[in-house]
Design a protein around this nucleic acid. Structure first.
Length: 442
RNA sequence: GGAGACGUGGCCGAGCGGCUGAAGGCGACGGUUUGCUAAACCGUUAUACGGGUUAUACCGUAUCGAGGGUUCGAAUCCCUCCGUCUCCUCCA
């Protein structure tokens, strides 16, 4: 959610940013709504001030035994107009919020222009695709042969875009998640969290999925939602709170199932394990001070990359263009892993800096409280302008997959497949597989 | 599912329809004292919006879970909703 004060100050900047996301100029309309709103607020304030003043006089008179009747009549007369004006004010405010809440955040300056993934920039590449002396198979072909994936039964039981994982493949899936969580919590300072998979509207509003993207999610009969990503549950932990700067950065990780309706993806990736209604993902979330979020974004991305490095999976890092980014993101790196079966890179992680966009929506703030003795005494004779005020300001939020476990499973299966149809286990996962070195045909 | 209790500031916790943006405490911050630390003492310490200012100051309004209502006037009375907790029941 954007700050109307900023839009008021720099309307052109906002229109320019939205234009990069393919939106028409809208600042002028927003400012008109804002003018209307402010006029209404002012009028209500005036009427209320009058009412309060007169009512106080009534109290005074009554205590002194005077005749308050005429004043009381006067206040009563005010009430009708006040009620009308309050209605105006409320409607004007709602109109502005309704216009603002569906507007995406502005792309960061260094984000390239472009409408879709064609314009994304490759930032770096790690590893090189292995050369096969046989034709590498798609995971959806090789895994069923290992007895590890069953699409037909899942379709019968649950419908399309569901899969049974079995035996060594199911264990490999679990091992991957375990390994990732251990890495992030053990080496990178993330606190492991087990999160709610069902959440309320307000959590999804805060992260930006609502009100605009309700179609992409599953709703429960008791009006909750299945989370489309643990980003929601993790980020919303700081909703409606004021943190002390010493609590920042806050680094959280969670392994969770994610649920997506994939309504907008009809016809895409209809076979295999790539695009499921339900998939497992290890998520990273950081809550930082504004000045730290850019560095944290880089750090988070390298944390996700480290997963792929240790699994020895070739990947590349893409900087998404303005048109390809999500609603709440001001800058996003995608990690794309090499899939030999498809003979191309596919997204396996997405790391985004959301700036203060989500924080504003969920009122997640922190208090700088940075008036240390040295600092303030140094500045006492100077302009007070530089003294940071102690009023709460929005934090910055970041989220990234570290990484998508379902897709990591596919990547391991395809990259580690052998000529005989078996799949080797990456060294780093072997401890999680009871020392097993390969998944072989039954 | 049955019965009941409760939602007040960063936190804890008072609160009689007007003198309550809200006692008191904790915490935090500033200062005094002090060889340092600690302690003690004094003071400051909500948020949002609107107006105003170069910027401060300052002024106004709202906010005691949310939304309605009663009233000249509501944290306080009434209604609805939401949430939390306890006991019983049930259950992984």
């Amino acid at each position: 959610m954007h700050d109307i004060h900023l839009i008021r100050a720099k309307p052109d900047l906002f229109d320019a940013g939205w234009a990069r996301r393919g939106l028409p100029p809208i600042a002028k309309m927003l400012l008109a709504l804002d003018d209307h709103r402010r006029a209404a607020i002012t009028r209500v304030g005036e009427l209320q001030a009058t009412r309060n003043r007169l009512s106080a006089e009534v109290g005074q008179l009554k205590r002194n035994g005077g005749d308050a009747e005429p004043l009381m009549a006067q206040v009563a007369a005010l009430k009708e107009e006040l009620a009308e004006r309050e209605q105006d004010s409320k409607q004007a405010d709602e109109a502005l919020v309704k216009a603002l809440e569906v507007l995406p955040t502005l792309p960061a300056a260094e984000v390239p222009d472009g409408e879709d993934e064609e314009a994304n920039l490759e930032i770096r590449k790690w590893g090189s695709p292995r050369s096969f002396d046989f034709t590498p198979q798609l995971h959806e072909v090789l895994a069923p042969k290992l007895g590890g994936m069953d699409f037909e039964t899942a379709a019968k039981v649950a419908g399309s875009r569901f899969t049974y994982l079995k035996g060594g493949v199911a264990r490999l899936h679990r091992a991957l998640a375990q390994f990732m969580l251990d890495l992030h919590s053990g080496e990178f300072g993330y606190t492991e969290v087990d999160v709610p998979l069902l959440v309320r509207d307000q959590a999804l509003y805060g992260t930006g999925q609502l009100p605009k993207f309700s179609e992409d999610m599953f709703r429960t009969t008791d009006d909750r939602w299945l989370i489309p990503t643990a980003e929601v549950s993790l980020t919303a932990m700081v909703m409606d709170s004021i943190m002390d700067q010493r609590e920042l950065p806050m680094r959280l990780t969670a392994g969770s199932y994610c649920f997506r309706s994939e309504i907008g993806a009809a016809g895409r990736d209809t076979t295999g394990f790539i695009r499921q209604h339900q998939f497992f993902k290890v998520e990273l979330v950081s809550i930082t001070k504004p000045e730290d979020s850019e560095a944290e974004h880089e750090r988070m991305t390298t944390c996700a990359e480290e997963v792929l490095k240790r699994l020895e999976l070739p990947y590349r890092v893409m900087l998404l263009c303005a048109g390809d980014m999500g609603f709440s993101a001001r800058k996003t790196y995608d990690l794309e892993v090499w899939l030999p079966g498809q003979n191309r890179y596919r997204e396996i992680s997405s790391c985004s800096n959301c700036g203060d966009f989500q924080a504003r929506r969920m009122r997640a703030r922190y208090r700088r409280g940075d008036t240390s003795t040295t600092k303030s005494s140094w500045r006492i004779g100077e302009s007070l302008l530089d003294l940071s005020s102690d009023s709460p300001e929005p934090v910055h939020t970041l989220n990234g997959s570290g990484v998508a476990v379902g897709r990591a499973l596919i990547a391991v299966l395809e990259n580690y497949q052998q000529a005989d149809g078996s799949v080797a286990i990456p060294t780093v996962l072997q401890p999680y597989m009871g020392g097993l070195k390969a998944i072989t045909l039954a």
